[in-house]
Simulated scan of single mutants.
Amino acid sequence: MDLLTPLYPAERLHPHFASLIQPHVGRSYARNELLRWLNGFPNRDGKFIEEFQTTFNSSFWEIYLYAVFREYGFEFDWRYCAPDFVLSTPACTFTLEAVTANHANDATPEWAGKLTESFFDSIEFNELNRVAIIRLANAFISKSRLFQDKYAKHAHVQGRPFVLAMAPFEQPGFNLQAYRAIEALLFDYYVDEQEYLANPDAFPYGPEAKSLGSVEKDNGAEIELGLFKGSKFNHVSAVVFSNLATWGKIEAMSGNPGAFVSSVWSSPDGLIPKVACASEAPEAITDGLRIYHNPFATHPLPGEVFRRGGVVQVWANLAEQTLVGEQAEACLQSRSVLIALRTAPDDPI
């Protein structure tokens, strides 16, 4: 599958794709890494290339997931067009649907915002997280309905765990939400970064979680939080999530000697900042991945399916209204990449 030869007029190309095919030496490293992720991925419906070149994020998320599942050694069953993946592991066979949280029709796309110093200085985490929760909720509910209306009728889906793989791309600076929004949506477990930063002395043990109950949309409608705190969505076994499966992941894994990766990792001793060149392979493809298990799932996803160092798995302790995380003290928390680009007109696409 040739993803990188432009097939459409420049005005139709997504800004990320247009940037990807620019003739810079640094871009060649990223393109090669992307093609490594893509190896063996089928263009089942004949639309994948168009979607990658014109809308990008949802296709990129599917490519990332495919590369992750290949890294795990899962077996793919490509006989079925839906859900997106039918995967076999030593623990079980399960189905998985990929979905991205995207910007509202009248909102600024994630790629259009200018991430300047003033942007980061003025960020309001509660507003950023409110928008993220709303858009993640829209994505979750739409795929939940699709499962109930269509997927649940298929024999290859019935009796097996069904997993949603969700990625946020809903606004400029979306990666700053970390996992606050998804945990609020699924478990009504919200860490108020803004409250903590305004008065850290009031929280000697760090930011604390609280229940919000709901968030309000711009039109005044309320979105109830805690989708995994009851049986309404028991057909969703788990949610796979990453706010770090972005183009920065490609750059960090590209081996580019001109790419410098600044990252923060959790450890039993606290947060550890690291700076490394991409040629030093500073992170793995599964770093930043989080799995949220539904305690009410009709068909639970076994924990051993995604168990791996650096991959955080989360279960709810409903009695104590807390979350229990596996690998939470040994994982990638954030990452940024600085690239030195050198123009090379003859650099092959």
Results as ranks from 00 to 15, higher is better:
residue 272 I to F: 11
residue 98 A to W: 03
residue 263 S to C: 09
residue 274 K to R: 15
residue 305 V to A: 08
residue 110 E to V: 02
residue 270 G to Q: 10
residue 192 D to M: 05
residue 3 L to S: 01
residue 299 H to W: 15
residue 100 T to E: 10
residue 285 I to N: 00
residue 280 E to L: 04
residue 302 P to Q: 14
residue 332 L to W: 09
residue 3 L to E: 01
residue 332 L to R: 10
residue 338 L to S: 10
residue 66 Y to H: 13
residue 333 Q to L: 15
residue 215 V to K: 04
residue 67 A to E: 07
residue 48 F to I: 07
residue 242 S to I: 10
residue 75 E to W: 08
residue 311 V to I: 15
residue 286 T to E: 04
residue 225 L to R: 04
residue 324 V to S: 14
residue 274 K to M: 12
residue 107 A to I: 02
residue 88 S to C: 09
residue 53 Q to F: 02
residue 329 E to L: 14
residue 173 G to S: 11
residue 324 V to K: 12
residue 228 F to G: 07
residue 148 Q to G: 13
residue 158 Q to N: 11
residue 96 L to F: 03
residue 134 I to D: 11
residue 137 A to T: 06
residue 264 V to F: 11
residue 249 K to V: 00
residue 328 A to D: 14
residue 309 G to Q: 14
residue 165 A to R: 13
residue 282 P to N: 12
residue 248 G to D: 05
residue 185 L to Q: 04
residue 259 A to L: 01
residue 106 D to M: 07
residue 349 I to K: 03
residue 100 T to W: 03
residue 349 I to A: 06
residue 185 L to R: 02
residue 142 S to I: 11
residue 174 F to E: 04
residue 260 F to I: 09
residue 286 T to Y: 09
residue 77 D to Y: 04
residue 59 S to W: 01
residue 32 N to R: 01
residue 63 I to H: 00
residue 98 A to C: 15
residue 229 K to H: 05
residue 342 R to E: 13
residue 2 D to K: 08
residue 139 A to K: 09
residue 112 A to G: 02
residue 307 R to F: 03
residue 170 E to I: 08
residue 55 T to G: 04
residue 233 F to T: 03
residue 246 T to P: 00
residue 288 G to F: 03
residue 77 D to H: 10
residue 179 Y to M: 09
residue 84 D to G: 05
residue 64 Y to L: 05
residue 321 Q to I: 01
residue 88 S to E: 15
residue 67 A to Q: 03
residue 143 K to Q: 02
residue 52 F to R: 01
residue 288 G to I: 02
residue 217 K to V: 09
residue 56 F to D: 05
residue 61 W to K: 04
residue 96 L to W: 03
residue 170 E to S: 11
residue 304 E to M: 08
residue 10 A to F: 08
residue 233 F to S: 08
residue 91 A to F: 07
residue 135 R to M: 04
residue 300 P to T: 08
residue 89 T to P: 12
residue 42 P to T: 03
residue 186 L to F: 02
residue 114 K to L: 14
residue 349 I to C: 07
residue 90 P to N: 13
residue 348 P to N: 09
